[in-house]
Write a protein that binds this DNA or RNA. Structure first.
Lengths: 345, 345
DNA sequence: CTGAAAGCGCTTACAG
DNA sequence: CTGAAAGCGCTTACAG
């Protein structure tokens, strides 16, 4: 590999001149610049990333913290990762994947201490996520995708849960649904995504005068079945279910089929954050709601790089609107339910 | 951040002694070692990765080349990535994600030239993949997941297509299927995964005396529908379809339903390389065949690290057996077909 | 068993 | 507009 000294020699200048030509941080005469550029081309020169990082204290590497073992995988996770990675590379940064769970914080402190990364993106953030404190202590700037219970002073990107819930419930209400079910995952502690989204749906339902029962489901087929049974136990008359738990969807569908409930004629089902190709696999294909995961990943990188560029503005919280993708799993509420509803009044 | 000089000062030794204590490359007296370890703990010392990389010419970083825009995403890709990342971290390496397509090779040559990575893992390898030459020219050791048309002298891990095809066809033959359909993706040039797997299925079918018709399908719902129509046009009597194209599965299922073909009573469908949670989404759930993606990612890292440790053995080709996961989408061949078959003789 | 010193390839004040 | 030189924080012969 050619070094900067090689380039300087070939161009007949000093290494510092080569360095300045490369960074553009001081004026270089045209003829000198041209000789340097030619020399770099001739030698196939690429600056050594380690020397640069050692001296400049900037590595142009950002870490993506993804706790791979914290739960089942979903395709949307890959979309976040690729959205972030693509944009980091566009901006001239490398993206390093840290998949150790680092729950104890020990490993993560190690990693952060190496000075390898300029900043970090934190995925799958939980209400009291120990990683946040570790990063703060290590002085590593970071942006969250999602957020901890108390995100004051911290940058994050997230789904606009309020808007998503209003959009979903509004659509279902238009279709005549007045009794809704909501299924989240098992990790529903206060402040978790599941809990926040459930709250948003409750509010949205109240706003349109609909009833809502919510249950948690394990991220398995049986979990979905059990959730369906519990929902129907709570409200046998519910006509639509919103699932914030991709892995419970097969169980929901099968339990419904076992009871002879046709979808969408007897029961509507909507899923949150399920990518199109996955949504097409069910029969009928799933109507879904959610923001673009790759867009969120992209925006998280932008937020982080802004901090790395020295922006000292107050913390930003960037929310992304969910979009409704109509497929076949939602339809008008069944008429019999309408009659039942009306007979109550 | 504490430096090695800080540790040396606190422990009352020279920096070189600290360095040797850390690397273990020369004997250090117990008392000295203890003082050094205590000092490192007290200071929360972590070696600076850049200084280490600059001096030692080893970064302990490997790149994972994943062309994010080369086609639609599948969950198994995330499994490869996480399998590789996890194992790299276990072995003390960092994994850097390179998702630029780098088809022209220019970007990739840039990246490889920075000296940032000790080696690379190449995913989604195509028969004549320009990335391979770029890496070879840059002197970056690498391991492929999949392989180019002529992989002589190159390390790779891959699915054992022959075994997978024999297992799949053997199972279908046991169930009485004698006329099979095969659906691959659009990129079916000679030497591609699709072409190789198709060849393996042809051989396996011939071995058990079954007929096989193969078609390509676009990675869309409509692509799947069109493929179904073409298959049925070629052989209206086929009773089982193997899909090496996850994205075409919804179209296949719907086209079959449109013709009133029940699954699995009238038609069996099997999918290659579809993760369990995705396989559960269809009705009935998909019977699948394939190796563990995370295992392949893990093994690819092992292969690469062995080279980085100086292993000069001949190139290794490591094939992984596919496993059959029986779910609901395959069953015995319909009896009417049996009768039709027999009436021919 | 331990230390002093050179040097990896850059960046960046300092000097002209 | 350009150069000589210090120094980033390590590793590793060289010397004892």
């Amino acid at each position: 590999m050619a070094t900067m000294a090689d380039v300087a020699r070939l161009a007949g200048v000093s290494v510092s001149t080569v360095s300045y030509a490369l960074s553009g941080t001081r004026p270089i005469s045209l003829s000198t610049r041209e000789r340097i550029e030619q020399a770099m081309l001739d030698l196939g020169y690429t600056p050594n990333a380690f020397a640069r990082g050692l001296k400049s204290k900037r590595s142009r590497i950002i870490a993506l913290l993804f706790p791979a073992h914290a739960g089942p995988l979903r395709l949307s996770m890959l979309e976040y990762i690729l959205g972030a990675s693509d944009h980091a590379q566009e901006r001239g940064y490398h993206l390093m994947l840290w998949t150790t769970d680092a729950e104890d914080g020990e490993d993560l402190a190690q990693l952060a201490g190496q000075g390898l990364v300029d900043g970090a993106l934190v995925m799958e953030v939980r209400p009291r996520d120990p990683r946040i404190q570790v990063l703060a202590d290590a002085g590593v700037p970071f942006t969250m995708i999602g957020h901890i219970a108390d995100p004051v002073g911290l940058d994050y990107t997230d789904t606009d849960f309020g808007q998503s819930a209003r959009l979903a419930v509004g659509y279902l209400a238009e279709q005549g649904h007045r009794r809704l079910g909501f299924v989240r995952g098992t990790r529903g502690e206060a402040g978790s995504e599941g809990a926040r989204l459930e709250g948003a749906f409750r509010e949205a339902a109240a706003r349109v005068g609909a009833e809502l029962v919510a249950v948690a489901a394990a991220e398995t087929v049986d979990g979905g079945r059990a959730a369906f049974t519990r929902l129907m136990g709570c409200d046998p008359g519910l006509s639509a279910i919103v699932a914030f738990n991709e892995h419970a969807v097969p169980g929901l569908l099968r339990a419904a089929a076992d009871l002879g409930r046709r979808i969408p004629e007897d029961l509507s089902i909507m899923t949150i954050d399920m990518p199109p190709h996955v949504a097409e696999l069910t029969t009928p294909p799933m109507t879904t709601i959610g923001p673009s995961a790759s867009q969120i990943g992209h925006a998280a990188v932008d937020m982080l790089l802004r901090r790395l560029d020295g922006d000292a503005a107050p913390a930003r919280h960037l929310l992304f609107k969910g979009e409704l993708s109509l497929r076949g799993s939602c339809g008008p509420a069944p008429t019999t339910d309408h009659l039942m509803d009306e007979s109550k009044y």
